[in-house]
Design a protein around this nucleic acid. Sequence first.
DNA 1: GAACCTACACCTTGACTTCC
DNA 2: GGAAGTCAAGGTGTAGGTTC
Length: 250
Amino acid sequence: MTGTSILQFPVLSEGVLLKRYKRFLADVELKDGQVVTVHCANTGPMKGVLHPGGRVRVRHAPSPKRKLAWTWEQAEIPSSDGTLCWAGINTALPNKLIRALIEAGGLKDQLGPIKTIRAEVPYGLNRRSRIDLLLTPDDSADDQRPIYVEVKNTTWSHGDVALFPDTVTERGQKHLEELTALLPDARGVLVPCLSRPDVIAFAPGDSADPRYGDLFRQAMAAGVEVLPCCFSFYEDQIQWEGVRTVCPRL
DNA sequence: GAACCTACACCTTGACTTCC
DNA sequence: GGAAGTCAAGGTGTAGGTTC
């Protein structure tokens, strides 16, 4: 079912990134010349996708509850083959994307038939962490263990290999340890959401966070499953490009 | 009991402040 | 100087209270 639309939404507006500042904010010049301040839903260093002067897509979502009416959703980036492609930068999107993918049966081969999906379920030490998705296998599944799914968004790449993290992430390290600790009573699944279509594999970003790389390899050796899911981004939808291979080390 | 609303916790990471 | 805590914006889901 690769190439099928997983999420659809109203057409995004296109503009040019002027500058990003205070990590949460960016100024974008829209096609009509209007300059708007947009919420940047990605507080990380955004390696590989932060290109002032480059084209971006933003969503208009005015609300009394929001200070900013615009949200930065996508950025045009140079792809591994030298052409241009669009990448998703909103870190809140991958959870929805992976949930929609599972509900559509896109990971049935890897996860088996699923009965229920719950989001943000407390788990881990003192239940102070929350797993992104907790899956309950269908009664017909061979493996009846609950499936804990941790989703990570990545836009960084080296050549055609996607990398995560792009900076030291203690939280990411903790998530790997907690996923490993769930074994063997449950299945622990790490889903790197590859928010760019030009990558063919996934590897841990050792150069950014060597400890994360070590924990990643330990987790895989212990039985944590890794399912890098690749997506392509359009102005009105997101399509699934399939599961990519895992390189334990770049 | 169902539906709705509100409050709260957590998630993302880096800059800044406070304290030892 | 280093460690720890706080804060920033917005989204999401859960828990609990209220209403019908």
